[in-house]
Design a protein around this nucleic acid. Structure first.
Length: 552
RNA sequence: GCGUUUGUAGCUCAACGGAUAGAGCAUCUGACUACGGAUCAGAAGGUUGGGGGUUCGAGUCCCUCCAAGCGCACCA
């Protein structure tokens, strides 16, 4: 008996009571919440449905509960139903009903935790999208970890997900990048508004090496164009490689420049003009975003005839929708949160529904600190931490886990001193060790003749077993919630709880018999639980893009 | 000034509007010649930034004040 099954049972009982006239007509809650009570004396599972729904039906919570409780009592697998406090319904399962989950998990294997709550949705998830003017730093690394994990979580719920990277290879920043490369190749100082650093010199050198002609003798503009074209290409390749090494592979790398070359920008503008949302003023072309909630209108074509940045966004969004995506999810850093309103306005201007067809997630930035003191990212001071740096210091698993275990709404502090110490205080090791332990236990069991030839769930009755079973049961709900709220960190937090429950169980319940003793049913039954825990840990880690090692 | 995110244990962070606010790290005390001690048990640590409000119930929702991050271009 799982909480999901209990919730279904409660929902159907309520409908039955209503149709029998025992319960007044009225709207029932669409989602019945069944939770593990914090206090063990409150039973195995509890629901607050009576408090949620009673007022709709004109009843007091306890009256509502009095009607529902006897119905639940009748079901198989339920030993006791009690009403407590303001109207909580506390449910205690009968012996063995909880232990069955071990069998369910092992039968499901890799598919345990999957759901269909997003079935049929075609999602575009855009993340990282860092400018190709330098390596990905720690901020972008956060979005790589979170975005990829979110993609996995969404896919686990049946959604079709396209991971997309918007490559800003058009505009003034790229020009600055090209000028910087050219200057470096000539051995000159970086331009005032340009980029500098070892990577600039390195790429400049590569461009020189790869170009057959004598670039430096070309006219200024042509030389710059050469550096632009191949510099961007090299940077792009490097970024792509870093991401790949980080375990993040995109389905689509979309080049901003292509929108201009294909005429998509002009088409998008024409479309908005036809819809009557454009006007001209002071020689510029404006989009009337204020009509859709923005605080000021936005220039799309500047008075000098050049396209403003938003022009690309218009065309890009239209392109995504044209490729059949129901929802376009953008993950942006907090330094871009000012764009949300205009993007939503743009969405509405096209006749789409903001927050449905276009979804924008704003993630807070990563701060670098050293011994508690903030450190400014500065190339000169050598405090720029790139994705590659981070991976080199702590490894992919630890880096991804550390970045994905917090809500994106919270600003994250990364302590350089802690990183340099390479300490093992990352909870990822706690979780991975639990998984490795399940494997070692299974190996020991096999060598001592303990197998899964028999299973008596009622024997899994030790308090630590009940806790572990209850925890394992929750994976599907946790993953579904993580997908619904776009919060993959929930999976990580959950795994830490599973690992804790597993370690405590390991400490108190032996799978293998003591030396000299014979293997009994209880040992075999516990092996089922041990293996089930391993499946949950492995499936969960996989959603985070973190490995589940068999030994550490 | 306006917008936005955040404020929870010494530190880093959790907690679909639910019962006694939780983990990890750090600190202190323990763990049997028993499946790996990267573990476990226990202690200590909190007026959830302050103040109002909404309701059966608020860390969570609303208002306000304080503090911090990030934005407020015909830049990208």
């Amino acid at each position: 008996m799982t909480p999901a099954e209990l919730a279904a049972l409660i929902a159907s009982s309520l409908r039955a009571l209503q149709s029998a006239g025992a319960l007044p007509a009225g709207e029932l809650p669409s989602d019945v919440v069944v939770e593990r009570p914090k206090n063990r004396e409150h039973g195995d599972w509890a629901t607050n449905v009576a408090m949620q729904a009673s007022s709709q039906l004109g009843l007091k919570p306890r009256e509502f509960a009095e009607l529902l409780a006897p119905e639940l009592q009748k079901a198989d697998g339920i030993a006791k139903v009690e009403i407590a406090g303001p109207g909580f319904i506390n449910i205690t399962l009968s012996a063995g009903a909880a232990g069955e989950i071990a069998r369910i998990i092992l039968d499901a294997g890799e598919s345990f935790g999957l759901g269909d709550s997003l079935k049929g949705q075609n999602l575009n998830l855009e993340f990282v999208s860092a400018n190709p003017t330098g390596p990905i730093h720690i901020g972008g690394t956060r979005w790589a970890a979170v975005g990829d994990s979110l993609a996995r979580v969404l896919q686990s719920q049946g959604a079709k997900v396209t991971r997309e990277y918007y490559f800003n290879d058009h505009g003034a920043q790229i020009d600055r990048f090209a000028r910087s490369l050219l200057a470096a190749a000539r051995g000159q100082e970086a331009p005032e508004d340009g980029y500098s650093g070892a990577y600039i010199d390195q790429i400049a050198k590569q461009v020189l090496a790869e170009t057959a002609q004598d670039v430096l003798s070309l006219a200024e503009e042509q030389a710059q164009e050469v550096f632009r074209a191949s510099g961007v290409e090299l940077m792009f390749a490097e970024i792509r490689q870093s991401l790949h090494d980080f375990g993040v592979d995109f389905d689509v790398f979309f080049h901003e420049n292509s929108l201009y070359e294909s005429g998509a920008v002009e088409k998008a503008i024409a479309r908005l003009r036809d819809l009557g949302h454009m006007y001209e003023l002071d020689g510029a072309l404006w989009l009337r975003t204020t009509e859709f909630g923005d605080d000021r209108d936005r220039v799309v074509l500047k008075s000098d005839g050049e396209a403003a940045y938003i022009a690309g966004d218009l065309a890009y969004y239209l392109d995504k929708r044209g490729r059949g995506f129901d929802r376009c999810i953008y993950m942006l850093g907090a330094d871009h949160h000012g764009y949300v309103q205009r993007m939503m306005a743009m969405c509405a201007a096209f006749g789409d529904e903001p927050n449905v067809n276009l979804e924008i997630m704003i993630g807070q930035l990563v701060n670098l600190v050293r011994d508690g003191q903030p450190v400014r990212m500065s190339k000169r001071a050598g405090t720029v931490v790139t994705m590659e740096d981070l991976v080199e210091i702590v490894g992919v698993d630890a880096a991804r886990y550390a970045l994905v275990r917090s809500s994106i709404n919270s600003m994250l502090d990364i302590d350089l001193a802690l990183l340099e110490k390479r300490t093992n205080d990352n909870p990822v090791f706690y979780v991975q060790y639990a998984h490795a332990r399940t494997k070692q236990v299974a190996n020991n069991a096999a060598s001592l003749g303990v197998d899964r030839s028999e299973f008596d769930p009622a024997l899994l009755s030790h308090p630590s077993e009940e806790e572990l079973l209850a925890k394992l049961t929750e994976l599907p709900r946790v993953v579904a919630q993580a997908a619904e709220f776009r919060e993959p960190h929930r999976v990580a937090r959950y795994l830490e709880e599973v690992a804790g429950a597993y370690h405590r169980w390991y400490d108190q319940c032996r799978v293998t018999p003591m030396s000299g003793a014979a293997a009994e049913t209880i040992h075999r039954s516990r092996l089922w639980l041990n293996d089930a825990a391993g499946v949950v840990l492995r499936n969960g880690l996989s959603l985070l893009g973190v490995s589940a090692p068999e030994r550490m």
